[in-house]
Write a protein that binds this DNA or RNA. Structure first.
Lengths: 274, 274
DNA sequence: CGGGACCTTGAGGCTCGTCAAAGCTGGTGG
DNA sequence: CCACCAGCTTTGACGAGCCTCAAGGTCCCG
């Protein structure tokens, strides 16, 4: 696997066109000429190892980054040495938007495993924007997506039960991996339970127990960090149905089809409510 | 009061300089000339009445808005007809940043009371930015503040107990009102308990109970929507100390001074934990 | 093989949401 | 002016959901 990454890395030195992420990383609808230009400003950095920081909070903002391989945790350190895990960045995704406006990073980013990124120096990107309308527009679109992301997380934390949070987390990962050409049903988590629980505003133990429960219910198989989603429709229902606060209307009665494995304490109670 | 607002409104037709919010609304450090230019592009809209929308989600983005008087609720409607209350805008504050990137509003904004706003048509603002470097910079700063705001809210929802959330909410309001020249200790809430609880990710009843408890403890006086903060240092401690998830370290033992009114169930338990 | 980081599991109980009912307040109409 | 109603707010009882504490597994690495 490591060797594989190394091999790819050499490719990237040559051209974005050969990058397996090319079609998802910056799906700009740019012309060949424009892509060439963009390629030229890219600063390919040497791979980071686990625990290494891409940037720290407060650092001046120099680049947007695209993850080629590996994964990154974006978080905000808080007063007491704690942290708030903000999001996880997968291959083919971008980060660094957090500082565009203020000129300084408002988050920190750390590699969760051996990770390589492309850097787009921001001042050069800006110049390119003046030349290519398309690029400008695309960046704005991406920025908007960042904000939408934050809003979803807010929604999740304000309104959703623990099980809905975890379900949502898994589905989101699955979706994003699928878009990048990985399997949507089977993947490895690169982040610890601690990171997950922090991200979702839960206790580690709760996350652990939920994984166990989901597995008992036949929704997925989990062994340490290896996940296989077995019943995605059912997982989706978990996400949609449950909103403890602002309850009221709990979606139509609609017979939950299948309810495999069933017969788990909390689950039974919940079924009764529907 | 209404008459008062009407009187002010006429003033605004004339000049920003006479606006009591002038020094807080856009503290740009602009020259007199620049301010004049800015003034010229302002579109003063007729006052909105309670429940009227400034913009709806999905609408094209036309302006940034500054609230002159009254207050506004910014929220995101969700599938089931629910909503997620995002923030409240007070006099002298701006809104409309949510759509700059995407061109469409990602939130809705509704007046909580009779409210008047100034609109800065965005296309004209952009032109001005090209002329005045300062304005450009200032907008970026404001944008950065918006994001920081979101992050704080995330932190609050992910990590803080109900009492810390309400304390934080009140302190934040108090701070902002102070900046705008209002009393920091005594004010009226223009939003319903429902809005507050939604914003904080709590049940209405919990908010109600917390108000009652805070009052019993001598932290504040509350009667319907009228608030007087009596013991701000103590309220600040509530905000800082308590973080249920990711608990650990619960700040030093330090004898909580005074604990007026004391002897309330939850409070006693908490004291025992310290 | 020992130590440490990470993960799981169990027991117990606090917080906060849910449900139900009653109190207030402002508006409307008689 | 009062009666009445609708919407907001408060209060109480109850227990579900999740956190805390504690201990034991599992994996990795030197």
């Amino acid at each position: 696997m490591d060797r594989n990454i190394a091999a790819k890395f050499i490719d990237y030195q040559v051209s974005c066109k050969d990058c397996c992420m090319a079609n998802v990383c910056l799906p700009l609808g740019l012309s060949a000429v424009e892509l060439d230009q963009l390629m030229k400003i890219i600063d390919r950095q040497s791979p980071m190892s686990r625990g290494e920081h891409l940037f720290q909070i407060g650092e001046p903002h120099k680049s947007l980054y695209a993850v080629r391989s590996g994964s990154i945790k974006v978080y905000i350190p808080t007063e007491g040495g704690e942290e708030q895990v903000h999001r996880f960045i997968l291959p083919g995704e971008l980060l660094g938007f957090d500082a565009i406006e203020g000129g300084k990073h408002t988050c920190a980013a750390v590699a969760l495993e051996t990770t390589s990124v492309c850097a787009f120096p921001y001042h050069r990107l800006e110049k390119l924007c003046h030349t290519f309308q398309g690029l400008d527009h695309e960046l704005h679109r991406l920025f908007g997506k960042e904000i939408a992301n934050e809003h979803d997380l807010l929604q999740l934390l304000a309104k959703k039960s623990a099980e809905a949070r975890l379900a949502s987390f898994l589905l989101d990962l699955s979706n994003r991996l699928k878009k990048r050409g990985f399997s949507e049903r089977e993947f490895n988590l690169t982040m610890s339970r601690h990171d997950i629980s922090n991200h979702l505003g839960l206790a580690v133990e709760t996350v652990s127990r939920l994984f166990a429960r989901f597995q008992n219910e036949g929704l997925l198989t989990v062994r340490r960090r290896h996940i296989q989603l077995q019943n995605m429709p059912e997982i989706k229902e978990l996400f949609v149905n449950v909103s403890p606060t602002t309850s009221k209307r709990r979606i139509a009665p609609a017979n939950r089809k299948g309810n495999i494995g069933g017969s788990y304490r909390l689950r039974k109670v919940k079924a009764a409510q529907v």
